[in-house]
């Protein structure tokens, strides 16, 4: 869980940027847009539970 999350996000970022370059050069802009969108959503769904846990722990810890 610790650092692997960072490496996963970095890997998805690099992969998506490479894919978008390839798709752009082969004149498929909409596909490039779709891949970047899916990459973004995938990372969002990875990070979302962490954000939720963060705010739950803060609420319990600081009695907010």
């Amino acid at each position: 869980m610790e650092v692997s999350l960072l490496f996963k996000i970095g890997a998805v970022g690099i992969l998506v940027s490479v894919l978008c370059q390839i798709l752009k050069h082969s004149q498929r802009e909409e596909l490039a847009f779709l891949t970047s969108l899916t990459g973004l959503l995938m990372v969002l769904f990875w990070v979302l539970p962490y954000i939720y846990d963060l705010f739950m722990t803060i609420q319990d810890l600081f009695a907010l």
């Binding site: 960072l6 996000i9 998805v12 970022g13 998506v16 990372v43 969002l44 954000i51």
Partner: peptide, 11 residues
């Protein structure tokens, strides 16, 4: 991809 750098700093 600047949006991924925001995700990385958040993570």
């Amino acid at each position: 991809k600047p949006e991924y750098s925001v995700y990385l700093s958040l993570a």
